[in-house]
């Protein structure tokens, strides 16, 4: 196995930007593993893992990216992975839950829940937030494997919601999979 690099890039969004970035990686002999991309507020962001020959350095990639034309400079962060990434799909923990939070927009909303999860030794697996007019929505995917009691946790979340005037809701991840993933068999969801 060669060298694995984790690459993060950000730029003003425009058509063709994925082609430009992946061309640089392809020209340097890179083999893509996992990749996440999204556009937020008109800015394109991409986080990916790729495998290269040992001789390829982060500087080679920076040099390649510097030739990409964009309205704003394409910014990149590249780190060499110290532990090899297992390409095999990792399953979500059995006790994966979704916590949704909605309320009037104000500063510090994500921090409130971030602190709450940290205090309960809960790992956040994924997070998406959106602001629509003055309503702020947060969706946390969390691993509740290590909590002592689901009942107690639910009560504490409810108290937090009342204190912070947030509509907080906890639901097992399987329910969302079952009600939204048309192609996934229920046995698969329960087995995961």
């Amino acid at each position: 196995m060669g060298k694995q690099l984790v690459i993060s890039v950000m730029s003003k969004d425009r058509p063709g930007i994925i082609a430009d970035i992946t061309t640089v990686i392809y020209d340097l002999g890179g083999d893509l593993a996992d990749l996440n991309q999204s556009v937020l507020g008109g800015y394109f962001t991409m986080l990916l893992i790729a495998e290269f020959d040992e001789k390829i350095t982060p500087e080679d990639l920076f040099a390649g990216f510097s030739h990409i034309k964009s309205k704003t400079k394409l910014e990149a962060i590249i780190k060499e992975m110290t532990v090899n990434f297992e390409v095999e799909r990792s399953h979500l923990p059995e006790e994966t839950y979704i916590v949704t939070g909605q309320g009037d927009n104000r500063k510090g909303l994500v921090k409130i829940l971030g602190d709450f999860f940290y205090c309960h030794n809960i790992n956040v697996l994924d997070l998406v937030t959106t602001r629509e007019s003055e309503k702020y929505t947060m969706i946390f995917q969390v691993d509740l494997t290590h909590i002592a009691s689901l009942d107690v946790f639910r009560d504490e979340l409810s108290i937090l919601g009342e204190e912070e005037k947030l509509n907080l809701f906890l639901q097992h991840n399987d329910i969302f999979m079952a009600t939204n993933e048309v192609g996934t068999q229920l046995e698969t969801i329960l087995a995961d």
């Binding site: 979704i98 949704t100 929505t137 969706i139 639901q171 329910i175 969302f176 009600t179």
Partner: peptide
Amino acid sequence: MLRSDQIMATVEMVQK
């Protein structure tokens, strides 16, 4: 993770 609109639609079904 699923799309946020899908998640919120399911939350509404359960909660409201």
